[in-house]
Design a protein around this nucleic acid. Sequence first.
DNA 1: CGCGTCCTTGAACCGCGTCAAGCCAGGTGG
DNA 2: CCACCTGGCTTGACGCGGTTCAAGGACGCG
Lengths: 240, 240
Amino acid sequence: MNNKITCKECDNAACFIKRRCSAEWLKKIELKKIQIEHKAKDVIFREGGYVEGVYFIQKGKVKIAAKGADNKEQIVRLAIEGQILGHRGSGDEKYPISAVALCDTTVCFIDNDTLYDAFMNIPKLTIQMMEFYSRELRKTEIRMKYLTQMNVKEKIAEALLFIKQIFGINPGDGTLNGSLSRQEIADLTGVMAEQVSRELGEFEKGNLIKKTGRRLKLINEHGLREIVKKYGIEQYAEQK
Amino acid sequence: MNNKITCKECDNAACFIKRRCSAEWLKKIELKKIQIEHKAKDVIFREGGYVEGVYFIQKGKVKIAAKGADNKEQIVRLAIEGQILGHRGSGDEKYPISAVALCDTTVCFIDNDTLYDAFMNIPKLTIQMMEFYSRELRKTEIRMKYLTQMNVKEKIAEALLFIKQIFGINPGDGTLNGSLSRQEIADLTGVMAEQVSRELGEFEKGNLIKKTGRRLKLINEHGLREIVKKYGIEQYAEQK
DNA sequence: CGCGTCCTTGAACCGCGTCAAGCCAGGTGG
DNA sequence: CCACCTGGCTTGACGCGGTTCAAGGACGCG
């Protein structure tokens, strides 16, 4: 891990916290926070490591995944700017999941003690953190249902809609703002990478997606929704 | 829904809150809380209904499930005494899931406004609620991984261990304290009820479980763990 | 004791995981 | 700037696990 620890006063530091704190508390937290820059594929924290604090994403995209038998990966969540990684641990708690940067990413680390101090003094911050976890719980429960009930084509269609909602599209040309490998789409849906290839091929024939080279470029949201409509797919987009 | 609303001052009222409040605040909350008794199979709240507050389980067992296409159900969580159902809603939010009593159950309802008031004034309560959701999120993420990676036999073995941990066993004879129907085990694992029957038959032959009549009575934890050991199954039991 | 609901068992089909082979994009070094 | 090389992607064939459909059985309630 070749991270650069800058700790400088940056403009959008810990945006989650910044929008919810008084100036006085923000100052205290600024002193304690550690800002870390990651390159794509860098591990932010690793399954099995000790929980020492919480990470806030300032910039970039992150996948949160757990390893199962035979090192098979399950991506449980995708996260972007403004979202939270990990949780406040107690005692010698360990992470059950890993967080990996999908592109150049800046996170802001705040240790357990500083957080606890803030939580005890800023009720609104704690409430919003609680609501973040509660909202993520509901989203995860809904995806759980999809993963058990959909067939492969539907799962992949749903995953593409999910990716579009999380990553967003570039204003202007409307192309997808970021992309996942076939294997990562497989890890997200719990199917085999070969099957992802096949379905993406089918989807392209049906004008449901567009690729340039290997990269997924355009997602025909309307068409894909047609495939999964009987499940009444939810909106995953984060409310700011 | 033939619920009896009693509202009396009961001994273990809102145990989650009781253990985390000053006497002064407990009194305020006691005045506002509504205690509701449910029979087995009663709906506590229904998918699509408006979120008006949070329920705390005082006594009993509850399944939390979401309906998918063709009304196929996915049980996302089992909850017992001391746990929380639902979340604080904002605006005209609706439940994405239903909660149904599995046996005679007493819950305690606290409305959004009273909760907000309490959260703003009792930091420790908010922190522990946050930790509850964050813990449930991690448990759900782990089960998500299992559901996509395990085969049917493994999923059912895992579900039986899950049930044992949540329901517990009767002290004395060591029999399972509560039970689910074949269909409910199917809804928990995302497999077909017929397959559950078949596997339970196999498990009984291998002395991994014992049935009396239709009811699941004994679960050989050690034997079942053997089946799922390559996943390193986690402990789901709630820390009090 | 009778009926309804849930459970059990069998058989057939097919979706998708598995294995294997070849391809192509994109990065690297000359 | 081109040629090579490597890791990801694509495609095909095959077989099994698990869903589906169907019929019969038994538990438990009234």
